[in-house]
């Protein structure tokens, strides 16, 4: 027959295994979060350095010291494109990690998401400043702002996102910057007010001052894209 202590020993071993697994799982999530946080910081620093660089170049222009605008624009463009790819990948990582978190508190991912939106807005401003400085420079860059609802059900937002994805794939010179209208952030509130956004989804073609409220087809938006490369 089996000793009664056997049941207790088995229980202790089982509990120990569970605690170890929880500890390991928690540490894995914390490390993953920290890595993502560091990537966000790095992305932020690159964004800051771009803006500082543009200020520096402006200063050189004023003093008539910038003879090589073409090369400068090339460098700026490659910096922007690299940032654009990194920023997009950052959001995918934030979303995936947030949904797959099982032990840690999910609320800390809200902060990362807000950092992403700041990075996205900074990227948008950087592109605007690039276009002004380099005069589109045969790139014919076209910026589009896309406002959607994240927290509530919005099938039109999903379809609109698909439409803009298709546009981006077909026209490599188009850049789309997506911002949710229902996240609590001052920056986003100010953007909503300044563009008078009261319906989701809303698409704004930047330099054309064209605003589409509600679901808009690919053909309608494409009409306002002069050059599609």
């Amino acid at each position: 027959m089996v000793n009664k202590n056997t049941y207790l020993i088995a229980g202790i071993i089982t509990l120990t295994l569970v605690i170890i697994s929880l500890y390991v799982g928690y540490n894995v999530e914390v490390n993953t979060y920290n890595q993502l946080h560091d990537q966000m910081l790095e992305n932020s620093m690159e964004g800051e350095s771009y803006l500082l660089l543009t200020n520096f170049l402006e200063d050189k222009e004023i003093h008539g010291n910038n003879d090589n605008m073409t090369d400068t624009c090339k460098i700026l463009k490659s910096m922007l494109d690299k940032q654009s790819a990194e920023t997009s990948s950052l959001y995918n990582q934030v979303y995936r990690l947030e949904t797959s978190t099982i032990i840690s508190d999910k609320k800390k991912y809200n902060l990362l998401r807000k950092q992403y939106f700041l990075a996205n807005f900074r990227l948008y401003l950087s592109y605007k400043s690039y276009i002004e400085k380099c005069g589109a420079n045969n790139d014919n860059l076209q910026l589009i702002l896309f406002f959607y609802t994240a927290e509530e059900e919005c099938p039109d937002c999903i379809v609109q996102g698909r439409v803009l994805d298709t546009l981006r794939q077909n026209c490599k010179n188009v850049r789309v910057f997506a911002f949710p209208t229902d996240v609590n952030m001052n920056l986003l509130d100010v953007m909503k007010m300044s563009y008078k956004i009261d319906r989701d989804p809303t698409v704004i073609i930047d330099n054309k001052d064209v605003i589409f409220e509600g679901l808009t087809s690919y053909a309608q938006i494409r009409r306002y894209i002069n050059v599609c490369k």
């Binding site: 995918n92 979303y95 959607y148 999903i158 996102g161 698909r162 981006r168 997506a178």
Partner: peptide, 14 residues
């Protein structure tokens, strides 16, 4: 079927 795509729509729901 082309009703959704990854990419931008991925930012809305993955």
């Amino acid at each position: 079927l082309g009703m959704i795509q990854t990419g931008l729509s991925h930012q809305i729901f993955s």
